[in-house]
Design a protein around this nucleic acid. Structure first.
Lengths: 245, 245
DNA sequence: AAAATAATGTGTTTATTTTACACATTAAAA
DNA sequence: TTTTAATGTGTAAAATAAACACATTATTTT
């Protein structure tokens, strides 16, 4: 609870003083953990790796690594993604920082959780590591460290976020049908929606571009393909006040 | 961009190996910065302190401190609040972590930003530090370090958050009038609202308890006083899906 | 004491958004 | 050719949000 270095709270400090503190004994290992979501076979997946630690053998864990002393935390997250998935043009967003004292058996490690959404099809071409596995989010349990908590925080974040921002399209191929899109939302939110109202809603938003193409090789009547108009979305006038607890 | 310690990505590591890394050279100073909001004279305020650093003399900065090597980051945030405001039963929530390499002149310091909402009346009794000042959020500029960016991130967070959660009541006295509440929302969201619709909305939510008391010492017809029913709010059934970009 | 003032407190109408719901169409499969 | 299982579309009802005006009350002013 107590830190050693600021009981005389308001004395004016010199850069010298601060430097001493910053280089002092209470420096902490900082890591980044990535919760990498994918969407495959109409199920929401998360990419896990068998724990690095022999002590956690058999447990799955998030993809993480220490942040370099000279490395931006955001860069660290991208580095991990690149190393693990081979992808470098991915959606990535910081979610939360976990800083309890005993969360890591090796010592004090504070970790910053990032969420990433990737296109599994795209990724499959590059995956090469059989310690990695796409897990169905519905059957996640008993992760190593506090990764269960981190995962749950990120999953809740995704559920909320996807309702307010067009993140989900990062999980789909560039061209998708409205059924694909609805399956995605239903999988992430774990609910069923009315097909007609769902379509009406997205058409009304007017961010979908009709590609005048049809699905190929589907075992039923093919649906039309669309892509998301990110440019138009960026230019939207954002709606504002609406109190709703 | 590169860290030294995980190029052989998938080798199984022992606790020993990890410990070496965790105690290694890339440990980082971690700090917490608190964006403390208050509401006074119908204006949203933020509590700032003259920079600790002589080098930043004249600049205002957020209230922060290094996190102790054995201190939970959340505890660190509470500690700072307690030290600076004398208050310990405050609303506090983590917002974002800022981790660019050069954000602090004294060396590598990654900082976790927390937002706090406090009751200024309550706080005034305990304030004792004339290096501290409540600034109107509308006239914030040129803060020390990257605190301008941190502040703006937290302010946007508050604007969004207050529309979805009953945070705002932490800024008001326990007993408040509906006019107080509307003034609060108008100040935070920087907008005007229709009084009748505002009241209708909050009454419909049914989380306000009518105290059967009136305002005292106001230079006009006194309004009724209410308090927020946090217990009932906690038991609400939360509404769910509603896609709206 | 009366009149003027400046706020509180309330209700209705309209527009918008959301929900519920059913049938025709198309391509693949049988 | 028939069957099947999906796509594609429209409308009515309900709920929510927005626009809007007047009576009431306590204070202040005259």
């Amino acid at each position: 609870m107590a830190s050693t270095n600021t009981k005389q709270a308001n004395a004016v400090k010199t850069l010298q003083t601060i430097q001493t503190e910053v280089q002092g004994s209470n420096r902490i290992a900082l890591s980044v953990d990535c919760v990498i979501f994918g969407f495959d076979e109409n199920k929401l997946k998360v990419l896990l790796i068998r724990s690095d630690l022999k002590e956690y053998l058999g447990k799955w864990s998030l993809l993480g690594d220490l942040v370099g002393g000279n490395e931006d935390i955001h860069d660290a997250a991208y580095r991990i993604l690149k190393e693990r998935t081979g992808l470098d043009d991915v959606y990535l967003e910081q979610v939360h920082t976990f800083g309890t004292v005993d969360r890591h058996p090796a010592g004090r490690v504070v970790t910053v959780a990032y969420c990433s959404l990737i296109n599994v099809q795209h990724h499959k071409l590059k995956i090469l590591d059989n310690e990695l596995h796409w897990h169905d989010v519905k059957s996640i349990s008993e992760l190593a460290f506090d990764h269960q908590e981190i995962f749950e925080t990120c999953y809740r974040w995704l559920q909320k976020r996807i309702q307010e921002h067009p993140l989900g399209f990062n999980l789909l191929p560039k061209k998708f049908s409205l059924r694909d899109l609805q399956n995605l939302y239903e999988a992430i939110l774990d609910t069923k929606m009315d097909r007609r109202n769902f379509r009406k809603k997205f058409f009304a938003m007017d961010f979908l571009i009709d590609l005048d193409e049809m699905e190929q090789d589907v075992p039923h009547r093919p649906g039309k393909l669309y892509k998301f108009n990110f440019e138009k979305y960026a230019r939207r006038k954002k709606k504002w006040v609406g109190i709703d607890f």
